[in-house]
Write a protein that binds this DNA or RNA. Structure first.
Ligand SMILES: [Zn+2]
Ligand SMILES: [Zn+2]
Ligand SMILES: [Zn+2]
Ligand SMILES: [Zn+2]
Lengths: 138, 138
DNA sequence: TTTCAATACGTTATAGCATAACACTGCCGC
DNA sequence: GCGGCAGTGTTATGCTATAACGTATTGAAA
């Protein structure tokens, strides 16, 4: 199990609930998944979840996985949105591994510099099978 | 304007129409955008477009941009789905630049090798502003 | 040539993801 | 107090994608 951030004290109620749901999950959750898990806590509409997610993602406490239309809690102790983050997503068990790579970041920076392109954010998602799932399938 | 593939002869009617629409567009199109542009040609349902897109993407003639839920025609003469492809998407004008980087690919390969992760496909999308749009804003 | 499998097609209905618009609340600085 | 700002709650709506059905076409195997 990867590192789990302590929950910052200044989150609002809804933000705390949503981050809690993400932290308790073993894999990515869609906004509607989250909503379903928080109905008992009083959440009723998708927008309540999306608004909380926006803030969490903005602060680097959660990440959006574009290729899944889903979200995960940040699993990297040092992450908090400095620099490029890559995700490896297992199609077998759904687990997500989060990592950073300075060389890749530099490489992208070079490309952007050469083209005069100003990078605002980068999505990098690897889909495949994790070691455990490969072992099981063998 | 980037290179445009000649349209392979063995495409079905619907596939040809969809690829045509993508080729004529200056930017990414959603499946529903494509549908709207092809109603005159007889297309009526999203599924007709999605099915064609599936085949085109499979063959490397088009690409899906996960962060936009949209599609582009392949713009790289050599592309055809060998290896990792990265996309730089301008938030200003919508233009998409497609490129490959062997170093990044190798780097990801290394990470995957070390983790025992089997890569099946990779999404890499840079969002930002292209040189032209930056010039205009200045 | 019949038969069978594979592939594409057309249509309706439905599921899943995301935001617009509006009203209201509580908080903090002025 | 007042004005601004961030958060909230709610309803309605829009966009993206697939399920499930049946039909048509094609191209080999039998
Ligand atoms: Zn993180
Ligand atoms: Zn796995
Ligand atoms: Zn391409
Ligand atoms: Zn631009």
């Amino acid at each position: 199990m990867a590192h789990v951030h302590e929950v910052p004290a200044d989150l609002t109620r809804n933000q705390g609930l949503v981050l809690g749901a993400l932290n308790r999950s073993s894999g990515p959750l869609s906004a509607y998944d989250i909503l379903d898990r928080l109905r008992e806590d009083g959440l009723r509409a998708p927008l309540q979840v999306y608004r909380a997610l926006d803030k969490l993602v903005e602060r680097g406490l959660a990440h959006r996985l574009e290729s899944l239309n889903a979200f995960v809690a940040c699993a990297d102790e040092h992450c908090h949105r400095k620099g490029l983050i890559a995700f490896a997503i297992c199609e077998g068990c759904g687990k997500v591994d989060e990592f950073a790579d300075a060389v890749i970041e530099e490489r992208l920076g070079n490309w952007a510099g050469a083209k005069g392109f100003k990078v605002e954010r980068t999505t990098m998602e690897i889909r495949g099978k994790c070691a455990e799932c490969l072992k099981l399938a063998a």
